[in-house]
Computed example of a mutant assay.
Amino acid sequence: MESGVVLAEVDKLTESTIVIDREINVMPAVIPPPAQNSDVDRFRSFNRFYTHMIGTLPEGLLNSEYSLTEARVLYELAMHQGILAREIADELSLDAGYLSRILRKFENAALIRKTVSESDARQMELKLTSKGKALFDELNERSNQQAEQVLEKLTPGKRSSLLHSMSGIVNAMAPERSLSPYVLRQNRPGDMGWVISRHAELYAKEHGWDEHFEALVANLAADFITKYDPRLERCWIAERDGERLGCVFLVRHRDEAATARLRMLLVEPSARGLGLGKALVQECVSFARTAGYKRVILWTVNLLSAAQHIYQQAGFKLVQEQATHRFGADMIDQTWELEL
């Protein structure tokens, strides 16, 4: 079951801290509801638009004599020094008979050759000939040119939005095992703008929070940049294939040198369910210990009860609660602490 966490702190009247995490699966996943007819219509409409745009409807792909499926098989052959027919069939979910006809066409055109497998003499590996490699290079270059023509027509903002949406589709639909692993890195120029915008957009959409929340996050991000102490503070950006998936901050307490604060933890909807939120929290705790802190504190609100389970797993304890109203909503602040 997906769970979410909203972490917020407002110190007196002048300073505030916010931490968000809505990602970790702590219970078995809830069975998705049936797709509505409107959803099916939108899905099919997108498929029609996209297949027309990239030119998969004509009989020959990219002005060649080969179909989309044949070109995809050619791609698999080019990506391997040697591959079995059944491995191609499994990868592309192709009927064995259909694949056999494609491979026969390739063989008759002298695009592939068969060699005895080094690992199993009973199996025949398929490899591209020099003619097959030349054909692949030509189709691959045409495909690159087609992509360039599409992207160059877009403004930088639209291009970024398109590529982000494409990554979201892959993350939502691809089997877990086929996705690239995410990495945790320190912040770079441009990351703070993303942190602010994604916090504001997600919480306006999912919780109806107003612009005061965006202002709060902007102030916290600015404070981190202007007052940054690399010995005691850190920001981590979670990234996969160049796409930002999440973030978290650990900063020192303004009054207590031995205390750190966990702030601005965020996980993109497309990355929820990967254990990313838990990994980011663990990274903070590990760094806090290394930096010599004795305690980590955070503030959360009661919007999502599964947050309590997340903090309990990390060793945090709930020490204080207080009703409040902010960002256009009623909520209960919760103070959590972890003794290191």
Rank of each mutant, 00 (worst) to 15 (best):
D90L: 11
R104L: 11
A134N: 06
N108R: 02
S45H: 12
P34F: 04
N47S: 06
E152P: 01
I54Y: 03
N144C: 04
D41A: 03
P33F: 08
V40E: 10
S64W: 10
S67V: 03
F136N: 10
I112L: 08
D95T: 08
P28A: 05
F106M: 10
E148I: 08
N108I: 10
R48I: 00
I112P: 00
E70V: 02
G60Q: 06
V150P: 12
V150L: 15
L103C: 02
D39E: 15
T51G: 13
Q146I: 02
S64E: 02
L154T: 02
D137M: 05
A121N: 13
R142M: 07
V30K: 11
I31G: 01
I54S: 08
I112T: 06
N37P: 13
Y75H: 09
Y50Q: 11
K114P: 11
A147P: 01
Q146D: 07
E138H: 15
K133G: 05
A109Y: 03
F136Q: 14
T51H: 14
R122W: 05
F136I: 02
P58V: 01
L68Y: 12
L99P: 08
D95G: 10
K105A: 05
M124T: 01
D120W: 07
R42F: 06
L61K: 06
L126Q: 04
R42L: 03
L151C: 04
P32R: 05
E118P: 15
I112V: 08
Q123E: 15
A85Q: 14
R86A: 14
Y50F: 15
E107H: 12
T129F: 00
I83Y: 10
R42W: 01
R142L: 10
T69F: 07
Y75S: 08
D120Q: 14
A134P: 05
I31E: 13
E107M: 13
T51K: 14
N47L: 15
I88Q: 04
Q146N: 08
A35P: 09
L126A: 07
N144K: 14
P58N: 07
M79T: 01
E107L: 12
S143D: 02
K131C: 02
E138A: 12
I83H: 03
F106Y: 08
R122M: 03
A134W: 07
D39P: 07
Q145N: 05
Q81G: 15
D41F: 10
I31N: 07
E118V: 05
G97D: 06
N63G: 12
Q146W: 05
R42K: 15
K133Q: 12
A29E: 15
Q145M: 09
L84K: 06
S143Y: 04
L139Q: 01
D39L: 10
L57F: 13
R104A: 05
M53Q: 05
L61R: 09
K105H: 09
M27N: 04
L57T: 11
T115H: 09
A109V: 00
S93C: 11
E125Q: 15
E107A: 14
R104T: 12
A134F: 04
N108F: 02
K131P: 04
L61N: 01
V150I: 13
E91G: 00
